[in-house]
Nucleic acid binder design. Structure first.
Length: 245
DNA sequence: AAGACCCTCAACCGCCTGGAA
DNA sequence: CTTCCAGGCGGTTGAGGGTCT
């Protein structure tokens, strides 16, 4: 048996929200504040699932969100953030004041994704694959797959796991992508400098102040020095600031 | 004019995570 | 330690409007 549904679906309204429903939701939240989404529909007199109410508020009704055209500056930021983070829309949205993850996701899927696809020629892809393959093949075979263990899920991340063996960087080219990220090398070097006796047979668990751990995880999947500088700029952070426990 | 096709985006779905019990 | 639950996330769907033929 699977997980219980978030609410009983019988007798609930579905699909587009009406103006009357919006008003009920807005009035209730103005009076009682956000949260307690599960009990909200009943308290507000709405025949909607709590999740639906939350989504409607956060993506559409909240006064904190900006609606309308994405500016060229925002578009540029989205493209760069997506290059760094992939489809982590909530993180991307977090860097775009008053924009929602859903809006950015939709914008990407309908517009930017196609643009980005156009920019990546087959040759670029081939070069990246070749570079990745070359580095991968230089690694000890039994350990190669473990290198995939870089933790990339950045949401609510309080720890970043750096894969072992990256401290041994001589087998990685300066321009190696994916595995030998510049970021990883810098982090790994820093770890080794501070934890010279760390075992190479287990992942190094690196803790840091919370606000920056996301950046670690984010950057762990990227290859461009330029991107690291971008993150340092965004986060007012440099690798030398790292503290490890 | 009308049907086919395309695009956008609000909404839904299932899964994951963290915290409380 | 385990279980349960609320909230959060990313992927996907589909209604509705616009454009093309």
């Amino acid at each position: 048996m699977g997980r219980a549904p978030c609410c009983a679906k019988e007798g609930l309204n579905r699909g587009a929200w009406t103006a009357a429903e919006d008003k009920l939701l807005i009035d209730h939240i103005n009076k009682h504040g956000e949260g307690r989404w599960r009990s909200l529909p009943e308290e507000a007199g709405l025949k909607r699932c709590g999740k639906s109410c939350r989504l409607r508020w956060l993506n559409y009704l909240s006064p904190d969100i900006k609606r309308g055209n994405i500016t060229p500056e925002e578009e540029d930021l989205i493209i760069r953030l997506h290059k760094l983070l992939g489809n982590r829309w909530s993180l991307i949205a977090g860097r775009l004041p008053r924009r929602t993850d859903n809006e950015i996701k939709n914008y990407w899927n309908s517009i930017l994704g196609k643009k980005a696809m156009g920019e990546h020629t087959e040759n670029n892809n081939k070069n990246k694959r070749a570079s990745f393959k070359q580095s991968f093949e230089k690694l000890p075979e039994t350990k190669a797959t473990e290198l995939k263990a870089v933790r990339t899920k950045a949401t609510r991340c309080t720890k970043v796991f750096i894969t072992p063996y990256l401290h041994n960087t001589e087998h990685l080219d300066q321009n190696t992508s994916i595995l030998g990220t510049s970021f990883d090398r810098r982090m790994a070097n820093h770890v080794v400098a501070n934890h010279g006796n760390a075992s190479v047979d287990e992942s190094l668990s690196v803790t840091s102040w919370e606000d920056h751990t996301e950046s670690f995880a984010m950057a762990a999947g990227n290859q461009m020095e330029e991107d690291i500088e971008f993150w340092e700029m965004l986060n007012d952070w440099t690798a030398d600031d790292c503290h490890f426990s």
